[in-house]
Amino acid sequence: MRVLVATVKTKTGLHARPAALLVNCVSKFTSTITIKKGEQEGNLKSLLDLLSLGVEQGDQITITVDGKDEDEVIAALNRCATENELW
């Protein structure tokens, strides 16, 4: 299991385009990927879950990845975040 903790930097928070980017980035992997904000938790492969979390700029999020391709997921997430200045 791999865990990624980050503070969201992107101005719009994780709605709109950034949310779609993240979901598209992880949906092809087999690992279970959850995103947590405070007490709330959701499936990062689900746009509806991610939008429901309502992640804003400055929020701290914890992404947990569990599965065979977890290392690749973390790498892909980091790449996506850097390219789009998400966190």
């Binding site: 979901v23 949906s27 492969k45 689900s46 509806l48």
Partner: peptide, 12 residues
């Protein structure tokens, strides 16, 4: 395109 993402949503 947003509609398609909803249709593919694993949680839904």
């Amino acid at each position: 395109e947003a509609h398609r993402m909803v249709l593919e949503d694993p949680e839904l």
